[in-house]
C-alpha cells in the first residue's frame, strides 16, 4: 500500500462534553517523520484531540485520518499504527515493571527475543533496570512516568503520541528520552505528536500548534512563531551606548536605542547574520554582545494573553487535573 503523505490529517474536528466545547473546529496536518507539538494551557483540548486520534473518544463532528485510516471507521488499523503515552497514569500497579512491559509486548505482538532486548534497553534508558522486578505500587511518581514512557516506546509504531510525557522528570531523564525519540524519528521515520508545557521542549519540535479554548491560534515552526511576536535583538554593552545606538541606527537603518547606561538594544531580523558586521564595524567600542530572541513564552503570552507557567503552577488547576485524570479513564 502506498504510504500517505500525511501521518495525521484533521479536518474541522469538534468534540463537545455537554455544554463544554473541548475541541472547537480544529484542522491541521502532520507530516510523516515530523515531531509535531501541541502547546496550550490547561483545558485547551490537547488531550481530547489526542484521544480522538487514538480512537479512545469519538468526535462530535469532523474527520480525522491517521496514517491514512479514518479514526472513526477503521479503529483497528489506526490502533495498529500508533503508540501512546497517556497524560494520566495507566500502569497496573500490582504488577512489576517487567510484567507491565511484558503485558504490553503481548498486546502488541512483540516477539519474545525482541521484547527482552528492547525492554532491557528501554529500562536502562529510563534508569529503572535495577527496579525491573519491583511492583509498580512501590514506585515514585517520576519512576512510574519513566516506566510508562519506556512502555510506550516498546513497540515500534508509525505515529507516537506523547501527552505531556516528561512532566515532573529530572533534566537528565528528559534529555535521554528526547535523544531516544529523535533517534526513533531519524532511524525509523516515526512521527511524533506531543503536547507539552515545557517551552524548551516545544523548541525541539519541527512544528508547533498553539491551541487555546479548543482552537488552534497559531501553527508553524518555532522560529516562525517567534517571528510573529517580534524581531530578534542584539544587546550591546558599550561605554558610549547612546552615541553608539544613534550611529548604528543611521548606518544600518535599523531601530536602536540605549536601554540604560552602557547598554543598547538593536532590533534586527536576523541577529546571527548581523553580529559579525557589527563587531567588525565597531571593533574596539564594544564590551559585550548578546543575542536576544523571543522565547516561546513570549509567543504564548502574545497569542493567549496568559503566561503558560502561571497556569502550570496554579494549585487549583493541578488539583482539577488530578481529579479529571482519575475520572477520564
Amino acid at each position: 500500500m502506498a504510504q500517505p503523505e500525511w501521518a495525521v490529517e484533521v479536518e474541522h474536528l469538534v468534540r463537545r462534553f455537554g455544554p463544554v466545547e473541548a475541541v472547537a473546529d480544529v484542522s491541521f496536518q502532520v507530516r510523516r517523520g515530523e515531531i509535531f507539538g501541541f502547546l496550550g494551557p490547561n483545558g485547551a483540548g490537547k488531550s481530547t484531540t489526542i484521544k480522538i486520534l487514538a480512537t479512545l473518544l469519538r468526535a462530535t463532528s469532523g474527520r480525522a485520518l491517521l496514517a491514512g485510516f479514518d479514526v472513526a471507521t477503521q479503529p483497528t488499523q489506526v490502533r495498529r499504527s500508533i503508540g501512546i503515552v497517556f497524560q494520566d497514569h495507566s500502569l497496573d500497579d500490582r504488577l512489576t515493571a517487567w510484567e507491565n512491559l511484558y503485558f504490553h509486548a503481548l498486546l502488541y505482538g512483540v516477539g519474545r527475543d525482541e521484547f527482552t532486548d528492547r525492554a532491557q534497553a528501554l529500562l536502562a534508558m529510563v534508569d529503572l533496570l535495577d527496579r525491573r522486578d519491583d511492583v509498580v505500587r512501590t514506585f515514585s511518581g517520576g519512576m512510574r512516568r519513566r516506566l510508562e514512557i519506556a512502555r510506550g516506546l516498546l513497540h515500534a509504531p508509525a505515529v507516537l503520541f506523547l501527552d505531556e510525557p516528561t512532566v515532573g522528570l529530572d533534566p537528565q531523564t528528559r534529555s535521554a528520552i528526547w535523544q531516544h525519540v529523535r533517534r526513533l524519528r531519524d532511524e525509523r521515520g516515526v512521527t511524533v505528536f506531543m503536547t507539552t508545557h515545557y517551552m524548551d521542549e516545544a523548541d525541539h519540535c519541527d512544528r508547533i500548534a498553539v491551541i487555546d479554548h479548543g482552537r488552534i491560534v497559531a501553527l508553524g515552526t518555532p522560529d516562525e512563531l517567534r517571528r510573529q511576536v517580534g524581531s530578534e535583538a542584539v544587546l550591546v554593552g558599550a561605554p558610549d551606548a547612546a552615541r553608539l545606538a544613534a550611529e548604528v541606527a543611521e548606518r544600518y537603518g535599523v531601530a536602536a536605542r540605549a536601554t540604560g547606561p552602557g547598554e543598547a538594544r538593536i532590533e534586527v531580523a536576523d541577529a546571527a547574520a548581523f553580529l559579525p558586521r557589527l563587531a567588525a564595524d565597531f571593533a574596539g567600542r564594544l564590551e559585550s554582545l548578546r543575542v536576544h530572541r523571543p522565547t516561546l513564552d513570549d509567543v504564548f503570552l502574545h497569542l493567549t494573553g496568559r503566561e503558560i507557567r502561571d497556569e502550570e503552577a496554579s494549585p487549583l488547576d493541578a488539583m482539577r487535573r488530578r481529579v479529571m485524570g482519575r475520572r477520564r479513564a
Binding site: H89, D92, H104, G325, R326
Partner: peptide, 17 residues
C-alpha cells in the same frame, strides 16, 4: 477499578479485538 486507575486505557488503545 481498571478504568478508575487508568489501566483500562492501555488495553483499549491496543490493536486487539
Amino acid at each position: 477499578w481498571d478504568r478508575e486507575f487508568g489501566f483500562l486505557r492501555e488495553v483499549l488503545v491496543a490493536p486487539v479485538p
